[in-house]
Simulated assay, not measured.
Amino acid sequence: MDIIKNKKIYLMISLIIIALGLVMFIINGFNYGIEFTGGTLIQINAGKFISVDEAKNIVKEFDENASIIHGGSNKEELIIKSTKDLSNNDVNRLIDKFQKEHKINKKSVQAEKVGPSMGKEIKNKAILSILISTIAMLIYITFRFEFKFGLAAVIALAHDMLITISVYTIFKLPVNSSFIAAILTILGYSINDTIVIFDRIREELRLNPKESLDNVVNNGINHCLRRTINTTITTIIALVVLYIVGVEDVKILALPLLVGIISGTYSSIFIASPVWYDLKKYKRKTA
């Protein structure tokens, strides 16, 4: 594959997705979960398993976008998170419907109002973690390779975060604590692929010092391409299976991981290396 020749096309694909995500963000904003907006939290100890679909048939009258997950060792507990500040009357009506359809004891239900303070704390710590990890990666890659490799890797990481965030805004997916955890996981996965490719490019530079820079980059990527694709496919298969057969609380983690890993693989091949190539070419022009 001639990655360098078509680098503008690959960059344009990413820019279109990010621009569309920005437009949707301006129009709709984020679909924040209860951790960030506050709302109503209802915990029902049903004493038996009630599927998410059955629960949603009841809850949708009050909040069709409410998050419903299972708790307890035998999944006998339902945890309903609504970003709406449901009135006491609505909460009582919701509980009455569960009691009527599933013979729930009212004493096994707990309902409370949740403030957004926890979400602010999670968001601030997540941003701090991303900044610290990004700076640490930049220092490590600069020490291990060179500054331009580190800068290209950081740009690729920013690309992965923006793509994942854009997908969430485009499809109005809920942004919650699981999304934050997935973003941090994606950073680690993406940088691993990028470093493998960079290591191969450095090896090509050492073995073929007279080769043109674009051929060096293309050869380095192509030598790693099979390994990168095989690793990504096996990871995607595992995540797709988790999303299909997993319970709701597993799905909300598997989805952003799936989006991020696809984006991370794309950026490692089509973004990070071409960015390094451009930085290297710019230095040679200005030298």
Rank of each mutant, 00 (worst) to 15 (best):
E248V: 04
N105L: 08
F143A: 12
V216Y: 07
I180N: 07
E204G: 02
V259C: 06
K8N: 12
L20H: 07
G220K: 13
R226K: 13
M1A: 12
Y277N: 03
Y189M: 10
Y10I: 06
K113M: 11
Y282G: 13
D249M: 13
A272S: 15
A46M: 07
I3H: 05
G115Q: 10
L86T: 10
V91G: 00
F25V: 03
V154G: 06
I155M: 09
T265D: 02
F147M: 12
I221L: 07
I79E: 09
R93K: 15
N215Q: 04
N31E: 13
G21Y: 01
E77W: 06
Q43M: 09
S178N: 11
V114N: 08
E204W: 05
N28I: 05
D2A: 06
F145L: 15
I195Y: 00
E248Y: 02
S212D: 14
A153K: 04
I104H: 03
R200C: 03
G38S: 03
S129K: 04
N219K: 14
F147V: 14
S14N: 13
K5I: 02
R206G: 08
A66S: 02
L257M: 12
Y282E: 10
A272G: 13
K100E: 14
D199W: 00
P116M: 11
L213Y: 14
V23P: 04
T134I: 10
Y277W: 14
R202G: 12
I183K: 01
L15M: 14
L255C: 00
D214M: 08
V245W: 15
K210E: 12
N57Q: 15
L279N: 10
S178K: 00
D193F: 09
L207H: 10
E112L: 07
K8A: 06
I16H: 08
I191A: 09
V245C: 13
A111Y: 05
F143G: 11
L242H: 11
A238W: 12
F25L: 15
S108A: 09
L131Q: 09
I80C: 00
I197H: 00
L184Q: 06
L162T: 01
S273N: 10
C224G: 02
E61I: 13
Q110H: 06
I244G: 08
L11G: 15
I58Q: 02
I130K: 03
E146I: 02
T194E: 00
L187C: 04
I252L: 08
T134A: 13
R226H: 08
L187Q: 04
V275D: 05
M161W: 13
E64G: 10
V275W: 02
K7V: 00
V245N: 12
S268L: 01
G72H: 05
S263R: 03
I79K: 05
T169V: 01
N222V: 11
S14R: 08
F147T: 11
G33V: 06
E61D: 15
T185I: 05
I155R: 03
I26D: 07
G150F: 00
I155W: 12
S263K: 01
E204L: 09
R202P: 00
K125N: 15
I236P: 08
I236D: 11
V23G: 03
I261C: 05
L184V: 09
T142I: 10
A287Y: 09
I16Y: 01
E64R: 14
G47R: 03
V91N: 01
I262M: 12
R284N: 11
A153R: 03
S67K: 15
I132T: 09
D53G: 10
N176L: 05
I155P: 04
I237V: 14
